[in-house]
Design a protein around this nucleic acid. Structure first.
Lengths: 198, 198, 198, 198
DNA sequence: GACTAACCGAGACGGTACGTCCCGTCTTAAG
DNA sequence: CTTAAGACGGGACGTACCGTCTCGGTTAGTC
């Protein structure tokens, strides 16, 4: 990623924050207009009033560029800690889903997932920036549940994260069924993560 | 899809079966050499010794072409029916996973999943040909389990299919953890689909 | 050179004569507007309504392209044969000079000469197409003069061609003195190629 | 030109002579390696360990830079004055030719001639620095010949300079025939500048 | 001894053009 | 009517340099 805040000082003209922002703004606008597959570096440069080289100087390719945009516009993930695991899970995972469904970010996220398939370098970055952090919060919620006795202490949290996020991604990608609160309840119920009703 | 068996008879030179095969062979070879993103219709035509037009006449684009190749080389899915749901599930789902992991077909499948994200027409085809059929077999196994009393009759089979295939796809896509028999047992166990050990 | 008349027949779509002409027209227009150094293949393609690849398919670079344009617009060189060497020389060489001075072709010719300096492949083509032919005609005139006894039979015609064209090119390139009929007379006089006046 | 000797004194850091030399050295090295057309200011700056701005501060462009390099490495022109015009001419013009043929300076000189075609400002500089001075010496030799009666007093010296240098440049540029002492004799002979043999 | 001005290296910047790849369409002759 | 061949208009790629700019840092003369 090209985090302008971390720009190392040294000789030479310093990196322009305005330019950086103009590029990401252009990415957002073009993404909204024509979607990830029709986004071209060329168009971003033109739209931002920037030389192509300036983009290539800081980002290896369009996937990285879009990911940085995505990180910028993604709402801060909540880190609920109410003392009730079921409630925390619902709050957090609902926010996760809404991060995809609200603002048409879903197709962008899946496009990046697609890109990650064919580019190992980007794949790792993608995992670190967009997957791992969320999994971490999820596992913290589950761990607190274990401490409190709400969840069997022997259950593998990494596995659980897969079992939770897996179906969510599956629906995001295939779009064959809704990705909503009802689905979330069904999912958590099937995994015995919420108290049985009745 | 361009099902050669459906070629309608009539006046004029008939469609060449050899050409059809040569094209799919070329797809396979190029896929192996440089992967889906670097596959171009141009290269397929050259490799197959075929005019580009001939490809465009029968396939809308490279995704469709690759999907047909994939369907051709994918092993026939087993339809186990041993009278034991847990065993059938393991047999079938293991075959599902191996269809991805053996023969380097995983990246091709995920690339198509990627393509499906941005092309609704292809997405539907992809779902019908590569997702739906497998889900159907899975649901049959589960349904038989319900009939036999191995599975609670009230459980939603479509939901269960999501909960099973979701995590599998998730690991296929992210590659952060193995996609093997052990994972399958964990998955089925967490969903109460196999008898508790002990 | 990319002589469309010599296009060899065979399978595949034949070369478009219209496109060929449109490209050369665009070259002429752009040359007139902004000169050789500011001429870009990109601009030619845009102006001609043609893909860049179409240009690169037929010409190795802009020098070749411009040379073909030049050959197209250059007036047919006269081949005077009046029986009088001095008169023939004057007629022919004046036409040679006017081919440079009329129609602003001078800068184009010198630019090609410049290009020929750094590109051996083009240099040879340039010599063959724009230099050699004219030298040939000149030497024929001189040879006829020798036959008739107007010129010493022992004089080296190739050397004479250098001594005639050399100063003409020199003035064309340096522009420090006029390139006109008076100069021509001085030149021929100094070389004893015209009868001494008085 | 950027004559370091003329640096005017005053406040501020004075111009660095080392930097100046490093730049011209880099020009020479790069010229030898890849020729004039492939020489870039960027490369000169990098090679010389110098900022691009420093180059642009002192030279308008690469042609000027290269011309200064050329003037630096060109041997001082001889100013022969033996009392014999033919001998003086041969000495001087041979040195002129060798200045081109020795040390691979020919392509550089012709490249500058090329550059002069399209850039009037540089053209004037080029004429003053690389053409005029040599013509001046040549005309002096001829003038002394006239004084001594070796050359007809009525002959136009400027014209004669064109008739001498013209063919020499012509061969330098076209490379179709050798540029050597034999040619020089032929040239001077044809212009009646050396005594007829026999 | 501080101040000021010009120099210098480094390198980011907006921009133009390059030559290539591939797209999907088209136009031929051959079968 | 299909096929192989391949030209076509077009869009984008990633790179090379252009000439300008903006930093921190240097190196003199002047106050």
């Amino acid at each position: 990623m090209a985090d302008i805040a971390e720009a190392k000082t040294g000789p030479g003209r310093p990196r322009s924050a305005e330019t950086h922002r103009a590029i990401l703004d252009a990415v957002g606008a073009l993404l909204a207009e024509s979607g990830y597959p029709n986004l071209s570096i060329e168009a971003v440069a033109t739209r931002a009033g920037v030389g192509k080289q300036t983009i290539y100087r800081w980002w290896p390719g369009k996937a990285d560029l879009v990911m940085e945009y995505l990180l910028g516009v993604s709402a801060q993930m909540p880190r609920p800690d109410t003392g009730n695991m079921a409630e925390d899970l619902r709050t957090f995972l609902l926010a996760s889903m809404e991060g995809w469904t609200i603002g048409k970010l879903g197709p962008v996220v899946t496009a990046l997932m697609a890109e990650a398939q064919s580019d190992a370098r980007f794949g790792e970055l993608f995992f670190r920036n967009l997957i791992s952090a969320r999994r971490g919060i999820l596992k913290e919620i589950l761990a607190r549940g274990q401490t409190r006795g709400e969840l069997d202490a022997h259950r593998d949290l990494d596995l659980l994260a897969d079992l939770i996020y897996g179906p969510m991604w599956y629906r995001l990608l295939l779009k064959h069924a809704p990705l909503d609160a009802g689905f979330l309840d069904d999912l958590l119920g099937a995994l015995n993560l919420v108290p049985r009703r009745g």
